[in-house]
Computed example of a mutant assay.
Amino acid sequence: MLVKQSIAIEDVRVPLKRKKTLDEAKVQQIAESIIDEGQLTPIQVRADGPGFVLVEGLHRLEALRVLGETSVEAYLVRARLH
């Protein structure tokens, strides 16, 4: 079972490959939704040393960053073993 926790946005690293998929219009739309309703869906991260690596939720994370938030609701997931 995933447990939601609040983590510092500055502790979340976004992989370069994932950053390339960023859509600014989508970030703006999500930011407006967060202003109205709050963050409804947590992002997913995995532990990486002292911080975290983003697994899912790039646009939500960036929307919160644009809004000046310092923390994000997140689920800590395990890395998949291949």
Results as ranks from 00 to 15, higher is better:
Leu64Lys: 09
Ala25His: 12
Ser33Trp: 04
Val77Gly: 00
Glu10His: 13
Leu76Cys: 09
Ser6Trp: 01
Gln29Cys: 02
Arg46Ala: 12
Val66His: 04
Asp11Ile: 04
Glu73Gly: 14
Ile30Trp: 04
Arg13Phe: 12
Lys17Gly: 07
Lys26Arg: 10
Glu69Ile: 12
Ala79Asp: 01
His82Leu: 10
Ala47Asp: 14
Leu81Ala: 06
Ala25Arg: 10
Leu40Asn: 13
Leu22Trp: 14
Lys4Met: 14
Lys20Tyr: 04
Val27Gln: 09
Val12Asp: 06
Leu81Gly: 03
His82Val: 03
Arg78Val: 01
Leu61Glu: 06
Leu22Gln: 04
Ala47Phe: 06
Asp23Phe: 11
Gln39Arg: 02
His82Lys: 03
Asp11Pro: 11
Val27Asn: 08
Val3Arg: 07
Lys20Thr: 05
Asp36Cys: 05
Glu56Met: 08
Lys20Val: 15
Val53Leu: 07
Val3Glu: 05
Arg65Phe: 02
Gln39Asn: 04
His59Thr: 15
Gly49Phe: 15
Ile35Glu: 15
Ile35Pro: 02
Leu40Gly: 02
Ile43Leu: 05
Ile34Asn: 04
Leu54Gln: 07
Gly57Thr: 03
Val12Ser: 13
Gln39Val: 06
Leu58Asp: 12
Glu69Val: 06
Lys19Pro: 08
Leu81Arg: 05
Ser71Pro: 08
Glu24Trp: 15
Ile35Met: 13
Leu16Phe: 15
Gly38Asp: 01
Arg80Tyr: 01
Leu22His: 05
Gly57Cys: 14
Pro42Lys: 06
Arg60Cys: 10
Glu69Gly: 10
His59Trp: 09
Ala63Ser: 09
Gln44Cys: 04
Gln5Cys: 01
Val3Tyr: 14
Glu62Leu: 13
Leu76Asn: 08
Ser6Tyr: 03
Ile30Ala: 02
Met1Ala: 09
Glu32His: 11
Ala25Met: 10
Arg80Asn: 00
Pro50Met: 08
Val45His: 02
Lys20Pro: 10
Phe52Tyr: 05
Leu16Glu: 14
Arg80Ile: 00
Gly68Trp: 11
Leu40Val: 13
Leu76Met: 03
Leu40Phe: 05
Gly49Ile: 10
Ala79Ile: 00
Gly57Val: 13
Leu58Arg: 04
Pro50Ser: 10
Leu16Pro: 14
Arg18Phe: 07
Gly57Gln: 07
Leu22Thr: 14
Ala47Met: 11
Asp11Tyr: 08
Ile30Val: 05
Val77Asp: 00
Ala25Thr: 08
Val12Gly: 12
Ile30Cys: 08
Leu2Ser: 12
Ile34Lys: 08
Ser33Ala: 07
Tyr75Thr: 15
Glu62Pro: 02
Ser33Val: 08
Ala8Ile: 07
Val66Tyr: 05
Glu32Val: 10
Leu67Phe: 02
Ile34Phe: 03
Ala25Ile: 03
Leu67Arg: 11
Ala31Pro: 08
Val77Trp: 00
Ile9Ala: 14
Glu69Asn: 12
Gln5Val: 01
Glu62Asp: 04
Ile7Met: 09
Pro15Ile: 02
Glu69Tyr: 13
Leu16Ala: 10
Lys20Arg: 08
Arg65Ala: 09
Glu10Asn: 11
Gly38Ile: 01
Glu37Arg: 06
Arg78Gly: 01
Ala63Gly: 01
Pro15Val: 09
Asp11Cys: 07
Gly38Leu: 00
Ser71Met: 14
Leu67Trp: 09
Arg65Asp: 05
Lys4Trp: 15
Asp11Thr: 06
Ile34Cys: 12
Leu22Ala: 15
